[in-house]
Write a protein that binds this DNA or RNA. Structure first.
Lengths: 290, 290
DNA sequence: CAATTTCATCACGGTTGGTGATATATGCGA
DNA sequence: TCGCATATATCACCAACCGTGATGAAATTG
């Protein structure tokens, strides 16, 4: 010996021994032989000229030096794994097209930025469209992935998160509860929010009229903030200019909707897998509670 | 290979290549053959299946992946070296006696705590005494190390830091500048502060009387804060109860003193070396400026 | 263009490190 | 208390690995 350089392989088996509590179990986890692990532990002790472990009967016990080295080992391995997967990530190349509903365009830029940082060699293209259209495009393999909104428990795709739908009006406006109810909706057909809203109103026996339509929330916003119509949004789409209405408004409660990820019907490309994973991670949870 | 485990040895040569800018220079630094370093670089690239470097003529240039790996490598190696030296430090055992002037006892506990954390197996004993006595004890090998104060450029020992000496009175007292000047000093003889003060006063033609003496600053403190005498201290010994006097007080300027470390006259034990280094590191600098 | 320096590549050889086998020790149940 | 099962340590073997020195190619210097 020996450059003062630790052998990460040995540290990894040290950690495995500690995690599993036994040499043979560690060997199984690491796909080594029991004898190998036993010798590796000895080698580590020899290299450091330290006693890292003792035996109490059959059970293994780490000395204080052993525990100390373990904590160093965990940190080193964490850093190693991070470095390794970062370097591997940089090799992933390819092109990738993702479809999203226009209204979620504001929610995703940070995810795209992060994705680009992790996978700089992947060319990512994003296309906006209505959910039903996006689903068609995925089926036709025109898109690798599509994030779509849908009613609860619809088939197809994996649920990323569930969100409550809300009625909303302009921040400083009184709710316009005339009959029929003036709604601001997306373009006719193919919009989930619209379907949901109409079903809810119909079930409640309310009449309504479509006061305004547009391709996106951005188009509806001025109408709504001016107090000319009510709109349906998810909680994450609320802006300071919008005020949500609760039950006291007398409007029927709206169900939850789902945000789901559809994948093209062949084995997904590696970039697609990664982006899908990242979207799930980044978008999961916040309002998963019922 | 291959577990997703990086080989720190290879990373070390990668860093060496980057630092030196050439394969042969890196080989020299690492005490390898040029061919070895060349192959190590290739091996690293093969393991990651990445191109880390390119050549522009004779000069080496790292690709962006290479640069990225370099930054990971530096962090990993730093952690490795830290872990390694920590583990080695835990093996250092032995006993060790350090002498310090009483007045610096307050300055050092944090150093001792740190030392114990780094070298838990070393038994450290600390002895207080006057500087001249401590020097004797070091010569007699009764102490392994001694931290002493002395006049500038005195021989023996290594200078750790230089500090200005100051005249000081109780915080709320007017300077007592009667003639002869009432001084609070350490026990007669063998005290550097006393020597320095008397030399300065003599050179300035001032008369003085020793109003109080004690073994330590702690003993003098009540006298001084009560305004009954003036005392000589270093800047680091100033407490909230003491007020330093500047030139406007009419007292002669005091020279700097040195804090020096004496080592027993045989080859120092490893614990002694380590403590010496630590003291130098921890105590160096703050008022090194003239 | 010769001299020098740096680098990549090769065959070789020593060491290392994993394997399977085996002996020893430990814990558990009859 | 005596086995049986399982965990561990140690050994010999052998294959792969890794560092070395030698060699030739490429590039820089004068």
């Amino acid at each position: 010996m020996r450059a003062p350089t630790l052998d990460l392989t040995l540290l990894r088996t040290l950690v495995a021994i500690s995690d599993t509590g036994s040499v043979t179990a560690a060997a199984k986890r690491l796909a080594y032989t029991q004898s190998t692990v036993s010798m590796q532990l000895q080698r580590l002790e020899a290299q450091l000229s330290l006693t890292l472990h003792e035996r109490e009967g059959r059970r293994i016990r780490f000395t204080s030096e052993g525990e100390r080295l373990l904590s160093h080992a965990r940190r080193l391995l964490a850093l190693n794994d991070e470095a390794w997967s970062d370097m591997q990530a940089r090799q992933i190349t390819g092109d990738l097209t993702l479809g999203i509903p226009e209204d979620y365009a504001s929610l995703l830029p940070s995810v795209f930025a992060y994705f680009h940082q992790l996978y700089p060699a992947v060319g990512l293209k994003v296309i906006c469209g209505t959910s039903s259209h996006l689903v068609e495009q995925v089926k036709a393999k025109e898109l690798d992935l599509a994030l779509v909104t849908r009613q609860r428990n619809s088939p197809g795709g994996d649920v990323i998160r569930r969100e409550p739908l809300l009625w909303a009006v302009g921040m400083h406006q009184q709710p316009l509860l005339s009959d029929p109810l003036p709604l601001a909706l997306y373009s006719p057909g193919a919009d989930v929010f619209r379907e949901v809203a109409e079903q809810a109103l119909q079930a409640a026996g309310r009449s309504w009229r479509v006061a305004y339509t547009s391709q996106s929330m951005a188009g509806l916003a001025p109408i709504v903030t001016a107090g000319l119509a009510i709109v349906v949004v998810t909680r994450s789409m609320l802006t300071p200019a919008l005020r949500p209405l609760d039950e006291s408004s007398g409007l029927p409660a709206l169900p939850m909707i789902e945000l789901a990820l559809h994948r093209a019907p062949h084995r997904p490309s590696e970039p697609a897998r990664r982006l899908g994973e990242l979207i799930r991670e980044q978008l999961a949870a916040p309002e998963q509670a019922l």
